[in-house]
Write a protein that binds this DNA or RNA. Structure first.
Lengths: 194, 194
DNA sequence: CCTACCGATCGGTAGG
DNA sequence: CCTACCGATCGGTAGG
């Protein structure tokens, strides 16, 4: 099960990168989590950075796919309704694998220059969806007039902050968090409940 | 000027820690920024972690002092008025030295176990001020009923996100950012302008 | 603040 | 996936 082993490596690496950062985690730390020797890891991966890259790419895929699905499910709805779906989608991906999400949010800057630039572009495009939706809602009067790019950044950093405190065994379920964060975000934009 | 040299070291270290993280920054990186040899740094500091500790402590001092001042200046005011002052104070400290603030927000977890625990307690007490103010405003009806701890976390992570994108030479002044973030935060809590 | 140096650890390779 | 190993770099010390 080559693919399964890769996933195990990435799962162990995700949680270590979340706890200690990419630079603060050694290849031997990751190997220890799999009960193998450090050098044995290279039977499965080409480099430490490849592991980071795989994690960050998969996370980006999931955020984009969830946003696509939210867009599709709310086509034609009002801006607040579409934003609600987008927030729920984002919180869902953040909480379903908080290690992976944390690496996407905080560790992508440790990528090599070229990969960092490519992922930066993807991240910017993703944030652009939020900017566009907020600008659209401001135009139609559904949201209070605001600096759409700044409001998008405000919302996204508030949401992404979830990776710093969320624990699956904590008192708040992902659904409860999403519900509160939807309410806070819609109000921040000056909209009532959709 | 022993004290001045320490400050120079901490300034260089702050911006490197912000860009590369604590673990991703070597003692020699810091020394290079001061045009001295790596080993020469130890004429001024006891360890790499002492530099991190000094930066994080100073930042904590400044956030607490700014919040004290905001509290004092708005004693007796409504919860929205007091929150406005608190947001302005927080954004002020974040932007006046974004390198230092970034280390406070993101790198404090790299402290040794004991120091990390001490700083965690200080950070929690600071967040407690926000929780208390939000709970107070919810009680008096100035804010929409909400989970006060969760709302405080939402606001603070949105604000702290400023360290990931703010540049002093960027298009938005600290005052402009603070004004927008006050409006977003008050609306998130269900309050109009104070 | 410098030179010279220390043991430990880093990411990674060779060859099974 | 293991053993054995590589050169480079790490934080830090000794002794000026």
């Amino acid at each position: 099960m080559v693919e399964t082993r890769r996933r195990q490596i990435e799962a162990v690496a995700s949680s270590l990168f979340r706890e200690q950062g990419y630079a603060g985690t050694s290849v031997r730390d990751i190997a220890r989590g799999l009960a193998i020797q450090g050098a044995s890891l290279y039977a499965h991966v080409a480099s430490k950075e490849d592991v980071l890259w795989a994690i960050v790419r998969r996370a980006a895929d999931q955020f984009e796919a969830a946003a696509d699905e939210a867009d599709r499910a709310t086509r034609g709805a009002t801006a607040p309704g579409r934003l609600e779906a987008l927030v729920q989608a984002h919180v869902g991906v953040l909480t379903i694998d908080v290690g992976q999400a944390s690496v996407f949010v905080r560790e992508w800057r440790s990528l090599s220059t070229e990969r960092r630039a490519r992922m930066g572009a993807r991240r910017d495009a993703y944030e652009g969806r939020w900017r566009a939706l907020i600008a659209d809602g401001s135009r139609t009067g559904a949201f209070a007039p605001a600096d759409a790019p700044l409001a998008a950044t405000y919302l996204l950093t508030a949401l992404n902050g979830i990776v710093t405190w969320y624990r699956p065994d904590g008192p708040l379920s992902p659904r409860a968090i999403a519900a509160e964060y939807v309410a806070l975000s819609l109000r921040a934009l000056g909209a009532g409940r959709p």
